[in-house]
Design a protein around this nucleic acid. Structure first.
Lengths: 131, 131
DNA sequence: ACTACTCTCCTACAGTTGTAGTATAATAGC
DNA sequence: GCTATTATACTACAACTGTAGGAGAGTAGT
């Protein structure tokens, strides 16, 4: 499954929450991140700061100070991180077999008719590629 | 997506490794678990013991002492734990949308022709169920 | 100039995870 | 009966994760 350019420590639970926000909005301050969090993820302002700093140390974010305020931007793109996390998850839980994951998922989720169409289309493409 | 009967702490990385073995073989001793680990997961004997004890505390395993030796068995079945972990993962990484996960997976994995057949069949069933 | 606000930076601390040593008890071989 | 082996129970400890308080600096209002 593809590649990761850097060798970053995996994201923890709450770090994902933060990163998701930053990927969505690109340039963010601590306050902006904090205010965007849904109620169940509300934390003290300095807690958000701590996470942002740790994410800089881990190499996921870049910090830029404008005037008083720090602005944070992602240094890695979301899809490469998602890819790493997914393949790690598939290894851990499904012994590396993504089709076992698929087999598990499909009967358990509520697919909308349009999801089904999309997936059919992708299957077709996968098939054509393999000849 | 289904339900979990108990409210267990999530498994950590190495705990998954251990649990996978126990689910596969049912009743296991520390030594058996240890010897089954592939080279890259080799750990000291007492490390394995520590993990087994923690898994008992967390409620995933049950311990039974026969003579000197402790035997460990799973108290929860694999698929319910897998289900919990999968839905947690999907929430964290794909904002709760399993079809986004599917959309991500399909182009990135190498599906065998028979996997494709199986998935088509499951899609059909999903479709029939929704009417 | 004083006050209130808000930001950063530094420090702290408990819980979890990864890792294993040590003391002690039972057992098997000689 | 002594010795080597092996299992358990207990203890330890560093790194990482979740959480936040306090000190100090800049800024806006009065």
């Amino acid at each position: 499954m593809g590649h990761r350019q850097k060798n970053l420590e995996p994201l923890s639970k709450f770090e994902w929450t933060i990163m998701n926000r930053i990927w969505e909005k690109s340039r963010q301050t601590a306050r902006e991140v904090m205010e965007a969090l849904p109620v169940e993820h509300r934390r003290a302002y300095t807690t958000i700061q701590t996470y942002l700093e740790r994410l800089v140390e881990k190499g996921y974010l870049q910090k830029e100070k404008l005037g008083l305020v720090n602005f944070y931007t992602a240094t890695v793109n979301r899809s490469s991180v998602v890819e790493g996390a997914t393949s790690h998850f598939v290894n851990q839980v499904f012994g590396g077999s993504a089709s076992r994951l698929a087999a598990f998922l499909l009967p358990n989720i509520n697919l909308q008719p349009e999801d089904i169409l999309v997936i059919r289309q992708m299957l077709k493409e996968a098939e054509d590629q393999n000849g």
